[in-house]
Amino acid sequence: MILTEEQSRAVGELPPQHPPVKIQKVGVLIVNLGTPDGTDYKSMRRYLKEFLTDRRVIEWSRFLWYPILFGIVLNTRPGRVGKAYEEIWNKDLDESYLRTYTRNQSDRLGEMLASHPSVMVDWAMRYGQPSISDKLNALKDAGCDRIVLFPLYPQYAAATTATVNDKAFEALMKMRWQPALRTVPPYHDDPAYIEAIAQSIETHVAGLDWDPEILLMSFHGIPQSYFLKGDPYHCQCLKTARLVRERLGWPKEKLMPTFQSRFGPEEWLQPYTDKTVEKLAKEGVKRIAVINPGFVSDCLETLEEIAGEAGEIFHENGGEHFTHIPCLNDSDGGMKVLEAVVRRELQGWI
């Protein structure tokens, strides 16, 4: 007896039908560090716990680190950091500016790639929401069988770029049908990036009624031990600084790379930004500017730590004029950089 297809399925000779699979779209997922959902204690503690339990961020032994983290840090730091976030919170949208700018970058990038209807652009955060896993699954379910994963870090560090990639591949490990995945390499020396940073400096300085004697190029620091283990971050930061200085045509003494945001008792990359700002002021330097080229979007570390705290340190020690040059954010110049990198990585897929 010959069975119909429906009869064959009923007796188990053919697999059950499943919904039609959507394919042949290409996803672009931009990923930034992360942000708390609010400035309250619980939101801050939840965010800091996810961040500070990442083995890429804190490489100490869990036996040494966890008693400190859960016994001290997560009981004291959420309140202090929450107050700092409160000072730079986007009150209009009730969210951090990092979330605002990252969403805007995703929206604008989607518009820039609108001539390719097969391309879908979305955004995620490594820590907090929306998560990398949720967005990868959403892109896959929407028909993206190829995805470009774009960690928004011009300079590569294991504690930033690598942990984004780790989380993405962790999500793929749970998928029966995985999309193909491309990860975007660092773009610390990309001509479009160097030009955008240089132009932002020129535009900002042109709007001042004074000329900076020195410009500090402040990058987020990493422990010195990470560098000694082979992390290329320090070298890439210095190369970015050199290329921007050469593009501006400035002498070596006018542009100085420094490192900020150290945490814990370890020695971090030097010179430290805060100590350098203090030292320059005490030595008689009256006018400085600071830019954060390693940050794609303004956030706590740029708005509160540099524009706020560093400026106060400079003035308290004799400095007269201090200015912080904003990150590229969702500006036209910044978006040209993201578009250039993404279009390069999409080659062969669109």
Rank of each mutant, 00 (worst) to 15 (best):
F150E: 02
L255C: 08
W123D: 06
A281P: 02
S96G: 11
A180K: 15
P191E: 13
G333Y: 05
L48W: 01
A289Q: 03
M112D: 09
S331L: 03
T39L: 05
E213K: 07
E170P: 14
H315P: 10
W250Q: 05
L149I: 09
G264K: 04
I72H: 07
I23H: 14
K25M: 04
P223T: 09
I291L: 10
Y193K: 03
D40S: 11
L152M: 10
A168L: 04
L243P: 03
M120A: 14
E87T: 08
M335E: 13
V277F: 04
L139Q: 05
H188E: 06
M217H: 04
G319H: 08
F259P: 02
V26Y: 10
M217Y: 03
M1T: 15
E213L: 05
D190K: 11
V81P: 02
G128Y: 02
D274E: 14
Q260A: 00
T183P: 10
H234A: 15
V296I: 13
T203Y: 13
T160L: 03
L74D: 00
K252M: 15
Y47M: 05
A168T: 07
L172H: 10
D274V: 08
E305W: 00
V290L: 07
P326E: 05
V337I: 11
L69C: 11
V21P: 08
R343I: 08
P186G: 03
V73G: 06
